[in-house]
């Protein structure tokens, strides 16, 4: 299990790019954190492992 945005998800073994694709998110307009670290774009091929915490951040309306 990988914790994605606070929810457990069957994502171990997937790359970050595959996870984003499964969520229908565009990598170029998304930011990803693994644990406390911001993942840079060239590292989106990283394979997620069991127990990791992933945050997927994008833009929403705001003032």
């Amino acid at each position: 299990m990988v914790i994605v945005n606070g929810e457990p998800k069957e994502a171990a073994g997937m790359t970050v790019l595959e996870l984003l694709s499964s969520m229908q998110l565009k990598p170029e307009r998304t930011a990803v954190m693994i644990g406390d670290e911001i993942l840079s774009k060239p590292d989106y091929g990283k394979v997620l492992t069991d127990g990791e915490t992933v945050e997927i951040i994008g833009f929403v309306g705001g003032g």
């Binding site: 969520m23 998110l25 994008g58 833009f59 309306g61 705001g62």
Partner: peptide, 29 residues
Amino acid sequence: TLALRRVNSFSGNILEHIPAGVTLLPNTS
């Protein structure tokens, strides 16, 4: 201006609703 939040699925990308050429000013809310 825009905000950043967790996104969980494709629920409408706000960037597609902002005209091209506009400077985006994200906030740290």
